[in-house]
Structures are given as structure tokens and as C-alpha cells.
Design a protein around this nucleic acid. Structure first.
Length: 623
RNA sequence: CGGGGCGUAGCGCAGUCUGGUAGCGCACCUGGUUCGGGACCAGGGGGUCGGAGGUUCGAAUCCUCUCGCCCCGACCA
């Protein structure tokens, strides 16, 4: 039996000033965690118990579909060289040297180590499929650790990897993980949503993130009543049609003096138009992955409706680059030919011969460029990628910059007056726009990512040479999937959600992940009768299989109530003045209700209540 | 990495501008009174003021360097 009087549960009346988000404050105040350094935390008794419960749920569900390994956190450089990620990971990876000077790193993830095992051990299609997972500490040298346990440099992750012979196999492994994740998060009592996610510039056929809505989150997701849900990095929308302006003069692009009108707001005010009648230009220099350093930076000029914003993730994916930065003034002059604020889609230097395609090995943009030029202009390529957002397609008589200081053009019509290299969805969707499924209005909210499932494809198996022989005796490359869950984030998200419902002042965890199912508060331990009842009930509940915390401290009742609330335990029994009438008070903090129960019924009542709460959190399929 | 803020007792803070050798609340210890929503009274312990160097008769306070933490941005398999 756990007696509070003997435990180390250092609750704080006030939160340390460093804590900003609710979960961070509450985790500190409740004595779950203590900070050791930026993004480095110790998990104390309660925090560890809760984490262990989450891990146990994950393990139980993952064991239904896969096999648990435990891999080294300390990895030799070679295995990361093999995949090319020793360089790609850059400063995000912790690196160190051993006494002989050999280079090592602390693993950020385990694609490499798992694939290494697969390539050394898997020989035949008969051994497939395989799903291997582990629950392990990961290290990432985050540029900016923050928000308590939400973004840290050392954290526990469940990561799983699937190995299949073909895409159908991968689809099946992916689906298994999807189901397992739904069950895991349901059991943890989370209110989550699975969203379409960006699969990155390296391709991959599918990816979903499991998100929990919370203001503490760092991701934005768009969703609608139709059930559509996607990360903003990926989300699309239906635009309501915009009425084009009537042409002026001969309808051809017309130069207009616009002194000092360098912003969208200036221009729309000057012309008396809506921003949707204006063409916005945003220009970037893109960098291809570090493995392809033989090529220069790639100029990327984008044009969008004046009231739209560039989505850099979409742009990077479509342009096949791994980094983007804004062009500086000289670059604007060189690649576009105009000054900032007056950049124009008309008159961009179009082509350059030779060379710039070298090393451009990935990306849809390349295919499009090749497609455009293969037949008519062999060996020539657009010098600059001119990407136009789909929102401008078919529009007429727009206002745009003139590539000349203090001048704009009107009557600009895409397709007639300029031809982009590619037309694609490169913008952020906005709140209220139509959902792509049924047009119902999109809602955009902040969320925290608690899990991610991802069809990796051949990225690692190919670069690392993981192959097996198929039925025909032919060597084929394994197809992989990768699947992660952030254990701390489950705890954090649960606390954030509950705290939000309580205006940040307190929270209650689902019994499945709370450090204890129930706390029994003996309001006055100097009253031997109360102590005796508390002990009796605690013993009975423990015998029924519940995790019980008996608050037997010599504290005033108020202190114990405050602490009981603070530690997030979902159920409480108050043993106090009611005992004289043979009753105790049962408090359900999740439902926010309390009622008196007879002493001889309390154990049975509570056991039923909690075991049923644990059961109803399971998805219908496993009830 | 850019911008901002902060390091004074376990926690929250004042004192720094204007140099004179450190204080408040909570927590902690002792005694007493209290005892169902963070009690009260009395007494007490605890701080090389993040670190190093400098200026000065004298530095928490002024100067230089440095370390750490937080926030915004950049970044985020």
C-alpha cells in the first residue's frame, strides 16, 4: 500500500517562473518532474508511474502486432553514414567521440539500426512481413527546447518499423499500426484526431499524424465537419470563386506609377481593390539535400493571391529542396530583375543553358521542368523555378509588380502574360475556406503531435541495401514503414486537455494513465476511527486490483484536498465527518461530481466504477 | 543562429537606476492553539546575490568577459 506520508511527492504551491504552459506548471507543481537542464527532465515518483502506465498500454497493444526489441542509444557513425543521415541531421544530432577518437552519436531515431539488422538478417520473402518496435530514450539537440515536456532533448519514444516485400504488404503493416494507435490513444483517454501529414521532400506514399487539440501545440491542423483533417502543411481547400476586375485600356498589361507602394496593403488601397485581385510575389533560395552539394542554390519565385500565404512545406516538397530561405535584395535583382515590393511575374529571366540540372535528382519540380523542356529545348532548363499557386489559375486582369521601383502593372493575366514553371498548391489554407471533401468550412486549430505513422518506402532499405529474395529467387529491396509515439507527449497532451477544461488550474488524468486510480484522503489522522476506515477501504480496493494512494499525512484537510487535486488522480474518497453516519464521500474528478456512499458499499462501488472506466476507454472492437 | 527577458534562501519576488556589506511572502524546524478546501501566534535555521576578472576605502548594485535558464522568431526524422 502506498502511504502518502512516506512518499516523496514534492508539490508546490507556486509554479517556478520558468514554466509557461499549463502542463509544465502542473507537472512541476504536482511533483511529477524536475528540470535538470534545458529540455532535460527527471521523472519523479508520480511522473514515472504515469509514464510506466502509458508505456504498458503501448507495449500491450504493440505486442499484438509486433515484436519488441531494445536497441542501443549510442550509435557508431558508420551506420548513420550508410543512410546519409550523419550529414543530414546536422546540429540536431548529439555527437561524441570515444577514447580512441571514433565518432558516435546519440540516436535521434532508429531507422538505421533497425535497417542494419534487417539487411544483415533477412534473407527471404518467407521471413516477411516483420514488425519490430522498441520503447527507448531518444536524443535530439533541439534548437529550442520548450513547453516543459512538449519539446525536449531527451525523451522516450516508441518507434516501430515494418519490413515488407511489396506495397500491399506495407499497406497492411501501416493499417495494423493505424489500428494499434487508435486503440492506444483511446485507452489513454485522449481526445485525438488522425490527420493527413506531409511526407517530406524525400517522398513516401502516405503519412498520418495523431494529434490532440491544444493551444500548447506547435502544429496547426485543419478539419471540417465532413471528417476531413490534415496538417496545415498538407491541407487543401476549395476557394470560393473571385470576380475578376474588368480590363482597363486595351486590356494589355499597363504600367501604373505607384510611388512607395511596396506592400499589399498599399497597393490594394491605391487601386481600391481587394487583396485577392493582387498578385503577391515571394522569392526563395532553395537548397537541395546535403548529399547533393554539387549544385548551387535553386532560385524559387512564387506567385500567389495577395491574400494568401506561402506554405513552405508544400513548396519544398514540390520544388524538391530541403531548405528554403528568403532571397536577399541582390538575388531578387539577379533572378527576378526587380526590387522588393515591386516584383513581377513578367520579365523573369527565363532560361539558362546546361549545368543547373546536375545533381537535381529529386523532386516533382524536376519532372515538371524536364517535361516542359525535354522535346523542344533539350539541355536547357529554366534558370529559376517560377511556381504559381493554383489560386491564381484562370484569373484575369490582376495587379502585379512591374519589376521596376515605384511601378505596378494592371491587367496582368497568368498564362497570357507569363507562364509559370509549375502551377501547384503552395499556399496555406485559411480558416473558413471550403473543405476539399464537401466544401464545409474548415476550422484551424493548434495541436500537439503524439504519434506519426509513415510509409517510408525504400529510402533506407535502398541506401543501406536491405534486400531479400522473392518467390522467383530475384533480389528485391524491402519496403519499410516507420511509426512513432511520443510517450511524454501523451502525458502532456492529457494534462493540457484536462487543464484547459479547468481553466488551467487543475487537471485529472484518465485512470489508465494516472499514477494511481484513486486517492483516499483521511481528513484527520488523529481520529483513529477515520484512519481505521481508510486502511480498510484501501486494503479492499487494492485486493480488487486498484492502485491506491492513501493520504495518511498529518496535514489539515484543506492541504490534502489541494494536493489530491494537484496530482491529477481521477477519483478520491474523503474519509471524514460522514463516517459517524456510516458514509464517505466519493469524488469523480473526471465527471466533476461527488456523492456520499455507505461504508459497506464504497469498495464495491469504486471498483465497479473504475474497472468500467478502464474498459469503456477501449475501442468497440475489443470491448 | 537573430531578437527580447531573467539569474538574490527550496518556490515566488523586492533591493540594482542613485555603491555603504541583504530583505518580504510561502515552504522548513521548535512550542502552543487549531483541524473539511493551501490555519494562527511566538521563536528559529537557511543565501560566497550564477561564475570570473576589474573599478572603488567599500560592489547584489558600476564595467568587461563568461555560464545558465525562459520567451518570440528561425528550426523541428
Amino acid at each position: 500500500m502506498h502511504r502518502w506520508s512516506t512518499l516523496f511527492i514534492p508539490t508546490l504551491r507556486e509554479a517556478p517562473a520558468d514554466a509557461e504552459v499549463a502542463s509544465h506548471k502542473l507537472l512541476l507543481r504536482a511533483g511529477y518532474i524536475r528540470q535538470l537542464g534545458a529540455g532535460i527532465y527527471s521523472y519523479l515518483f508520480l511522473g514515472n508511474r504515469s509514464m510506466n502506465k502509458i508505456v504498458a498500454i503501448i507495449r500491450e497493444e504493440m505486442d499484438r502486432i509486433g515484436q519488441e526489441f531494445l536497441l542501443p542509444a549510442l550509435n557508431p557513425r558508420e551506420v548513420w553514414e550508410a543512410s546519409g543521415r550523419w550529414t543530414v541531421m546536422g546540429d540536431n544530432m548529439f555527437r561524441l567521440k570515444d577514447r580512441k577518437g571514433a565518432e558516435l552519436c546519440l540516436a535521434m531515431t532508429h531507422e538505421e539500426v533497425m535497417t542494419d539488422i534487417a539487411r544483415k538478417e533477412l534473407r527471404s520473402y518467407k521471413q516477411l512481413p516483420q514488425i519490430w518496435y522498441q520503447i527507448q530514450t531518444k536524443f535530439r539537440d533541439e534548437p529550442r527546447p520548450k513547453s516543459g515536456l512538449l519539446r525536449v532533448r531527451q525523451f522516450i519514444m516508441k518507434d516501430a518499423y515494418s519490413f515488407d516485400i511489396d506495397e500491399a504488404g506495407l499497406d497492411a503493416s501501416y493499417a495494423k499500426h493505424h489500428n494499434a494507435y487508435v486503440r492506444i490513444f483511446e485507452r489513454c483517454g485522449l481526445n485525438f484526431v488522425a490527420v493527413e501529414a506531409d511526407s517530406g521532400a524525400m517522398g513516401g506514399s502516405g503519412s498520418q499524424e495523431f494529434m490532440v487539440y491544444t493551444d500548447a501545440g506547435e502544429d496547426l491542423i485543419a478539419s471540417s465537419a465532413s471528417g476531413y483533417a490534415a496538417n496545415l502543411e498538407k491541407a487543401t481547400s476549395r476557394l470560393t470563386p473571385v470576380e475578376d476586375l474588368a480590363p482597363t485600356g486595351d486590356g494589355q498589361p499597363e504600367l501604373v506609377s505607384t510611388p512607395g507602394m511596396g506592400s499589399i496593403a498599399d497597393v490594394t488601397a491605391f487601386f481600391g481593390i481587394h487583396a485577392s485581385q493582387d498578385i503577391k510575389c515571394v522569392a526563395f533560395m532553395g537548397t537541395r539535400t546535403a548529399a547533393e552539394t554539387d549544385t548551387p542554390l535553386l532560385p524559387i519565385v512564387t506567385f500567389l493571391r495577395g491574400d494568401h500565404q506561402v506554405n513552405e512545406t508544400k513548396l519544398m516538397a514540390i520544388a524538391g529542396v530541403s531548405e528554403l530561405r528568403p532571397m536577399v535584395a541582390e538575388e531578387l535583382e539577379l533572378h527576378i530583375g526587380g526590387p522588393a515590393g515591386f516584383l513581377s511575374p513578367i520579365g523573369i529571366p527565363e532560361v539558362m543553358t546546361q549545368g543547373s540540372l546536375n545533381g537535381l535528382k529529386t523532386g516533382k519540380a524536376l519532372e515538371q521542368i524536364k517535361g516542359i523542356f525535354r522535346e523542344d529545348v533539350p539541355n536547357r532548363v529554366l534558370k529559376t523555378i517560377v511556381a504559381m499557386d493554383g489560386g491564381l489559375e484562370g484569373r484575369k486582369n490582376l495587379v502585379a509588380g512591374a519589376n521596376k521601383l515605384d511601378y505596378h502593372l494592371r491587367n496582368v493575366t497568368p498564362g497570357r502574360d507569363f507562364t509559370p514553371t509549375l502551377i501547384a498548391d503552395i499556399r496555406n489554407v485559411n480558416e473558413g475556406e471550403g473543405c476539399p471533401i464537401d466544401g464545409s468550412p474548415l476550422r484551424i486549430g493548434k495541436a500537439v503531435e503524439i504519434g506519426h505513422i509513415f510509409k517510408l518506402g525504400y529510402k533506407y532499405s535502398k541506401s543501406m541495401g536491405a534486400t531479400v529474395l522473392n518467390r522467383e529467387g530475384k533480389e528485391v529491396t524491402l519496403i519499410m514503414g516507420s511509426y512513432g509515439i511520443g510517450v511524454e507527449r501523451i502525458l502532456t497532451a492529457a494534462i493540457e486537455s484536462s487543464a484547459a477544461a479547468n481553466e488551467g488550474s487543475s487537471y485529472a488524468l484518465h485512470p489508465a494513465i494516472a499514477p494511481f486510480h484513486i486517492v483516499i484522503t483521511i481528513t484527520n489522522i488523529k481520529d483513529a476511527a477515520l484512519v481505521a476506515e481508510g486502511e480498510k477501504i484501501a486494503t479492499a480496493l487494492e485486493a480488487a486490483g486498484l492502485d491506491v494512494l492513501l493520504d495518511d499525512r498529518d496535514e489539515r484537510a484543506g492541504v490534502k484536498f489541494k494536493d489530491a487535486d494537484l496530482v491529477g488522480i481521477p477519483y478520491r474518497i474523503n474519509i471524514g465527518r460522514g463516517v459517524a453516519e456510516g458514509k464517505v464521500e466519493f469524488v469523480d474528478r473526471l465527471q466533476n461530481q461527488s456523492n456520499d456512499i455507505a461504508l459497506n458499499e464504497i469498495a464495491g462501488h469504486v471498483t465497479t466504477r473504475i474497472t468500467s472506466a478502464l474498459r469503456t476507454s477501449l475501442p468497440a472492437a475489443v470491448k
